[in-house]
């Protein structure tokens, strides 16, 4: 198991290197001069030259990439000040260190992602299991139709609607906002409740349909029929045999989804004006804030790769056949 994890981690490092190189060369090869962007409106050739030197833009591209990558591990010194490891450079837009900004935004994104995941896992898997248990019956048909409707909704449509209805009309919930859990757990919860629910709507629908179909597939497996032939009750067979087998596809998709959410839920963050990584990414695109964008991209990619390794490790827990090979 340890060997397996080490091998996968090494593989992940290689993947991340490739991703970083691709993003780096893609961004710095664009025809807009980063130094010019950094320089602002009152720019004269002299200060442009200084900025170029300060940013290391006068060096060859490969050398810049090397300096960037080395900086992540060893830190760098810029003219504006030292940048301790992990150094992703300074934002062009705010002059703040990129890593610091990411750390600032991370709690919002993690809160949103984890809370949303809890909601859609509970609702989605619950509804899927119920539908599979009562397959072909009224409950199944009802849940299937509901999930079909849900999956066709859009966050930017439901979000404002939910606020208008639940906050302004009925005054049931608080206006969405992010309050750090450390300062007030109650406010943290109340402020994120609507974003969690809205974010989970589409996921819930997706997980309902997926868990229903994999469970029904598992219920048709030979070993499930064999378990019934042993006299085990329908419930035991359902939970001990069919459910176990349906976990693999669910865990796979969940790992990908959670990894992606940790990199920022752009639409949800924008809809509810929550200061998370998704918003940060969009803002830095609009500002052509290359260091920031690069940092967020690398962070998001790392999250996805990391969760993929986790998923593989979980496979081995679920399916003993994976353990040996």
């Amino acid at each position: 198991m340890l060997r397996f994890l080490m091998r996968r981690t090494l593989g992940a490092v290689v993947i991340l290197l490739i991703i970083s190189a691709c993003t780096f060369f893609l961004f710095y090869a664009i025809p807009r001069d980063p130094a010019l962007l950094h320089c602002g409106k009152t720019c004269d050739p002299e200060s442009l030259e200084i900025i170029r030197r300060n940013l290391g833009l006068d060096k060859p591209l490969t050398e810049q990439y090397w300096a960037y990558m080395a900086g992540i591990f060893t830190g760098r010194d810029f003219a504006v000040g030292p940048c301790p490891a992990p150094c992703f450079g300074y934002s062009f837009a705010s002059n703040e260190p990129v890593w610091g900004t990411i750390l600032d935004r991370l709690p919002t994104t993690v809160s949103l992602a984890l809370g949303g995941a809890v909601v859609f896992l509970l609702l989605g898997l619950g509804a899927g299991m119920l539908a599979a248990w009562r397959r072909g019956g009224f409950v199944d048909k009802f849940l299937s139709s509901v999930s079909l409707v849900l999956s066709s909704l859009q966050i930017y449509f439901v979000g404002p609607l939910a606020i208008a209805l639940l906050v302004y009309q009925l005054d049931l919930f608080r206006q969405p906002e992010y309050v750090p859990i450390t300062s007030s757990p109650v406010d943290w919860f109340a402020g994120l409740l609507i974003p969690w629910v809205v974010l989970s709507l589409i996921f819930t629908a997706q997980y309902t349909r997926m868990s229903r179909s994999t469970l029904i597939e598992q219920l048709g497996e030979d070993h499930v029929r064999a378990a019934r032939a042993k006299g085990l009750s329908g419930r035991t067979v359902f939970f001990r045999y069919a459910w176990r087998g349906s976990l693999i596809p669910i865990v796979t998709i969940f790992g990908i989804d959670l990894g992606a959410l940790f990199g920022g839920a752009m639409v949800t963050e924008f809809t509810f004006t929550l200061p998370g990584l998704g918003r940060l990414a969009v803002d830095s695109v609009l500002d052509t804030d290359l260091p920031m964008l690069m940092g967020v991209m690398l962070f998001a990619a790392t999250m996805i790769v990391l969760f993929n390794i986790l998923v593989d490790a979980v496979y081995a827990l679920i399916d003993p056949r994976v353990r040996l090979s």
């Binding site: 497996e221 030979d222 499930v224 029929r225 064999a226 378990a227 045999y241 087998g245 003993p320």
Partner: peptide, 28 residues
Amino acid sequence: REKTLERLRGDTVAMVFQDSLTALSPYH
């Protein structure tokens, strides 16, 4: 009734299937 059948299955009457690879649960 299903409860009656569950009592019979595995105790009074048991079954051996063709393909032991698929008829045994891989997870247990």
